[in-house]
Amino acid sequence: MKTNGNTAGSKHKVVTLREVAEAAGVSTSTVSRVLDDRMPPSHSPTAQRVREVAAALGYRRNTFASSLRRGQTATIGVLVPRLSDTVMALMYEAVGRAAKRLGYFTMVATTGDDPAEVQDAAHSLLSRNVDGLIISSSRRHDPLPQQLREQHVPHALVLRTDGISPSSVGDDEAGGYLATRHLIDLGHTDIAVLSGPLFTSTATGRLAGARKALREAGIESNPDWIIETGFGTESGAEAGEKLFAASARPTAVFAANDNLALGVMAAAHRYSLTIGTDIALVGYNDIPLSQHLPIPLTSVRTSFDQIAATALDLMLATTDDPHPIRKALPTLIPRQSSGSHSSVGIRF
């Protein structure tokens, strides 16, 4: 049996299918079939011998080349606004895990919140022949998904949706309702809502859920306490300053993501207000930091892995439904920040 003869410092030699076939005494097509991990594994003596020879020679299947022969690259492009946002980083990692299970590699591009940058990033990824796009940066009226639909580019929106393209999202309205209903059930009627940017479906959905809970409870919300914000910590701190500096301030705050809630915590500290006692606070997404804060944060949890796996299925699937939108149900995780010490999740 031949070996590849590699030594430290020598140039790596690429072992071909033909070399494996010659060493194993079988045809090249047999080797290709045995080593194709997309096929059910064969346990015949010939297949076992081919795998042993391939391992001894150091053969590695060239997924890129075989994908090109099928007109694919086994690569998926992922668009996120920024990876400094914990939620977007977690979402990208979840997409990467889901893609790996299906034999795909992911390539990420950050876009900020500028639609022109989103367009440029999408075109850049498509020029690298990705097999499709997973997009977490879309606005409700973003032109990119429409262009992708018209050009028949496989794609799915994740976390956010334009209401038309294939989308895998959390049920944001249900989550906003859960968060606000929790505060109402704890006895609060003076509730502020920090919505996030209303050009996103996440913000509009969570605000709609909050308004529904307030309306059902017969609570007329103070318009000064419904604040459109960004999604960053700084936006939460700025909104918290505005709320806590006023002569009449709320007793509870629903922040439409955990970064906003962290900003509210910082503002409360500056005004000598204790979270969980003076101010009840609920966030959204249940990022890992939430439960490890000095005052653990009550938050609405969505399953990033479930959302990512569904997005990949939508992007890769051929379906009779031209505009499928899948929603994952959220769970409320009560902690000390809302004045609740229970750790039992509450589902919608």
Rank of each mutant, 00 (worst) to 15 (best):
G5K: 15
N6Q: 15
A8Y: 07
K13P: 01
T16E: 02
T16F: 00
R18K: 13
R18C: 01
A21I: 09
A23P: 02
V26G: 05
S32L: 05
L35S: 13
D37N: 08
P41V: 14
H43C: 01
A47R: 13
Q48P: 00
Q48S: 05
R51P: 00
R51L: 02
A56Y: 00
Y59T: 13
R61E: 03
N62T: 06
N62G: 09
T63Q: 10
L68V: 03
R70I: 03
T73R: 07
A74K: 07
T75A: 02
I76L: 09
L79H: 06
R82S: 14
L83S: 11
T86G: 09
V87M: 15
Y92W: 11
A98W: 09
K100A: 15
L102G: 00
Y104T: 11
T106P: 04
T111Q: 02
D113I: 06
D114I: 04
Q119M: 10
D120Y: 13
D120I: 04
R128H: 06
L133Y: 06
S137N: 11
S138I: 11
L144M: 02
Q147K: 12
R149T: 09
R149L: 12
V158S: 05
T161M: 02
D162E: 08
G163H: 04
G163K: 07
I164F: 05
S165G: 10
S168L: 07
V169S: 14
G170R: 11
G170M: 11
G170C: 11
G176S: 12
G176L: 04
Y177A: 05
L178W: 07
H182C: 03
D185M: 04
G187L: 09
I191G: 03
I191Q: 08
L194R: 13
F199E: 13
F199D: 14
T200I: 01
S201C: 02
A203H: 12
T204Q: 11
A208W: 02
G209C: 04
A210R: 15
K212G: 01
R215V: 07
G218W: 03
S221I: 12
P223E: 10
W225S: 04
I226K: 15
T229L: 00
E238P: 08
E241T: 15
L243S: 10
T251L: 03
A252Y: 09
A252P: 08
F254H: 13
A256P: 08
N259Y: 01
N259Q: 14
L262H: 08
G263F: 06
G263N: 12
M265T: 07
H269R: 15
I279N: 04
G283I: 01
Y284Q: 07
N285C: 05
S290V: 01
S290M: 02
S290G: 12
L293M: 09
T298Q: 10
V300D: 09
T302S: 11
S303C: 04
F304C: 06
T310L: 07
L312G: 11
L316Q: 15
T318E: 13
D321I: 10
I325Y: 00
I333Q: 12
P334C: 01
R335M: 03
S338R: 05
I346M: 11
F348N: 04
